[in-house]
């Protein structure tokens, strides 16, 4: 047996924990997907042909794309102020990013319900002030899911974007302005392209997180816009079909793994710079 160097021994508890609590259960789930109810790949065939499962996959993909786009746009603006704003602006942005970041996802989903539901604060006030006669349906649909997810994911995009923006050499921007370029041109043709690797990295992080979302779509979607993670829950706990739930889990896992591999490759040239 090869001798482990002493620092490597420090990794043993973590690796052991990961194997016991993550790898072993996942292999168990993977085993269900090919053995329940009978051995074979029938569950994968169902997962990739059943119209209900396919529609959930499609919705998951669509919501994740919209959420990623909206999150990146919102984060880019917020982070720009965070990195390049005045001291006061930085402080305000920092609080606006960090405070929600520290609050549990469950609390935040209920917060959005209180704000956006038919009898929620927004609808009640708008009706009392006479802007609306009928309440607007803002939750228990895709819109609510997207709002909740974007809000949750903004900090996850803001951190990689901030490090990309901080790496931009101020003198490059000065050089561009010195050559007569307007602020708009400097932003669009110099600043944004220079942060493009950061944008791509942030988008991948957000997309991967969004794929596995469970609590937010379950609460704010109200059972009407079911996403992949919620479907797995339903197949395991409510209308039991463990084999199908397991097959969907494995497919989701493969998608996330593929995207993470892409993310690693994306991160390497940026780190080597």
């Amino acid at each position: 047996m090869p001798r482990l160097s002493r620092p490597a021994l420090l990794l043993v508890p973590l690796l052991g924990f990961m194997v016991l609590t993550y790898l072993v259960p996942f292999l168990g789930v993977a085993a269900w997907s090919v053995t329940l109810p009978e051995p074979g790949l029938t569950q994968y065939q169902t997962a990739l042909t059943d119209p209900l499962v396919l529609s959930v996959f499609l919705r998951t993909f669509r919501i994740c794309l919209i959420v990623t786009f909206a999150t990146i746009c919102a984060s880019y603006m917020i982070t720009l102020l965070w990195v390049r704003g005045s001291r006061m602006q930085r402080l305000v942005i920092e609080l606006c990013i960090l405070i929600p970041f520290w609050i549990s996802v469950l609390t935040r989903a209920f917060g959005w319900l209180a704000l956006l539901s038919n009898k929620g604060i927004l609808n009640t006030w708008a009706q009392n002030l006479g802007f609306l006669t009928e309440p607007l349906t803002l939750v228990r649909n895709e819109f609510g899911v997207i709002v909740g997810m974007v809000h949750f994911l903004i900090p996850f995009a803001a951190f990689p974007l901030a490090s990309a923006m901080r790496a931009v050499d101020e003198r490059v921007l000065l050089a561009a302005r010195g050559m007569g370029a307007s602020r708009t041109r400097v932003f669009a043709q110099v600043f944004v392209p220079m942060t493009a690797p950061g944008i791509l990295g942030a988008a991948l992080v957000v997309f991967v997180f969004a794929l596995g979302f469970f609590v937010t779509p379950a609460l704010l979607g109200g059972g009407r816009s079911v996403m992949a993670a919620e479907l797995i829950y339903l197949r395991i706990f409510q209308s039991p079909n463990w084999g199908l739930g397991a097959a969907i889990s494995v497919i989701l896992m493969v998608a996330v793994g593929g995207l993470l591999a892409l993310l690693m490759r994306q991160a390497r040239p940026a780190g080597a710079r």
Binding site: R171, L174, A176, R177
Partner: peptide
Amino acid sequence: AEARAFGMVFQGYALFPHMTVEDNIAF
């Protein structure tokens, strides 16, 4: 500064890393 449009050369070169040499000069 953009209306003065004086040429500027910095110690750290300050080239646009995402553009080729020609695109830098064409900017």
